[in-house]
Design a binder for these strands. Structure first.
Lengths: 237, 237
DNA sequence: CGGCTACTTGACATCTATCAACCGGGGTGG
DNA sequence: CCACCCCGGTTGATAGATGTCAAGTAGCCG
């Protein structure tokens, strides 16, 4: 199968790589009763920042972007959500970010009050929730470092490394990295313009670090430029 | 008293503006037994990111910077901590950011295990902790938007507005804004260089938006440029 | 096949970083 | 007590990275 034929059309990220909740069967049944499954049509907005929060959502299929906007329309994506991820949290009373799905998607919708009473009745879950949020804080700090101090190239490289880890979590890390999101989404995640993202890709391709393929990238293996295969500053110490 | 004589040397932010914990006397006594008060000398590092985490700290006096570093030494400050703020969290096992104090400071040190058992025995506190972390996530998203999509001027203005709100929380918002941190710290918070920060201040001063005074700023009141007195996009809707 | 949208590419402008010199206050040592 | 030095801050000249604007291309869907 040639690279171009490689089908990225299938589901990716069946499970998010984030903190996984370990639930007993009883708990799962209980949760299923709380939740209402919903369909979200492609590119729809699930909720907007500052809107009153009536429910907590977990994504079950598809990919979502979680972002904040300036009044001039400029967007900063804070996170991509994969199936299994929460789209929001039970506090505060208003949404702290907006969420769009990038394609047809499904989610569970938990009425906020019921979600909280359930969680508070299950200390184990509350604690896991706590860990989830602390992971998010860690991720946010990492992203802040990137946005505040990274060059365009560093931002892009970090993005690919992290994204590859996330979607490849189930098996080995593949050299074919699916990119189901648009260039605009990548740019909005990295705090860059689509033109800059496009040029970065062109540069990397020229340097034989990767190849741009439909809806994804093919990484060319660690050569003289191991760039895309290690986190520069995670490995130091 | 002239502006220049205004003493910013006193304590600022006796209480952080963040989520305040409401504790019974019994709880306070219990907490006091868990905690060990410690002194931190000026500019000292309390802990470094990725170090094993043995304790949870709350700041009691002084101001701290919470930051992450790139291997090249570039720093991104994620937060300034005021008295009453946590410097870290009980998870994960390693610190997710470094903390330095910008002047002599004191803190409470809670052995991590004891902190967790205490918190888990007090669901009310656990829940408040949860809210605290969600506030931090909100703040981090806001900061990401600023770093990814804000111009140098927008970053600085947002910083002043937020900082003024934090240190002025107890009383009315003053037009004298103390800046106990160095230009380097401000630059590292905003993802800029000290030169750019310096030039921004010079510009604002030229436009009569503010005056630079020792260890602080004097805001000149909403003129034709209300700039520093409202959050541009909080007010929209 | 045609038109739309997403993406790419090029020319140019602009913003912020970099490099370097300079200033000023506070502390220190002669 | 004064001079010096050091450090933090400011200012200027210049460069470089990324944004902006505009044109062109390619893939996709009707």
């Amino acid at each position: 199968m040639s690279v171009e034929e490689h089908a990225f059309s299938g589901e990716i990220g069946h499970l998010a790589d984030r903190k996984q909740f370990v639930l007993t069967e009883a708990e799962q049944r209980e949760i299923a009763q709380l939740a209402q499954p919903i369909n979200i049509r492609s590119k729809a907005t699930v909720f907007k920042e500052r809107e009153p929060k009536v429910a907590v959502y977990t994504l079950t299929q598809g990919i979502a972007i979680r972002y904040r906007m300036k009044p001039d329309g400029h967007k900063q994506i804070v996170d991509f959500a994969l199936p299994g991820d929460f789209l929001n949290s039970p506090f505060p009373d208003r949404h702290t970010c907006s969420v769009d799905v990038i394609s047809q998607a499904t989610a569970y919708q938990f009425p906020k009050r019921r979600f909280m009473t359930f969680v508070e009745a299950h200390p184990k879950i509350l604690r896991e929730l706590l860990e989830t949020y602390l992971q998010q804080i860690d991720a946010a700090y990492e992203h802040m470092l990137l946005l505040g101090r990274g060059t365009a190239e560093e931002r892009f490289v970090e993005f690919i490394i992290r994204w590859r880890e996330r979607v490849g979590r189930k098996g080995a890390l593949a050299n074919l990295v699916p990119l189901p999101m648009s260039r605009r989404d990548i740019a909005d995640y990295l705090g860059l313009t689509i033109e800059t993202v496009s040029r970065l890709l062109a540069n990397f391709e020229r340097e034989k670090v990767l190849r741009v393929i439909p809806k994804g990238l093919q990484l060319m293996g660690p050569t003289e430029r191991p760039l895309l295969f290690e986190r520069s500053y995670k490995v130091i110490q």
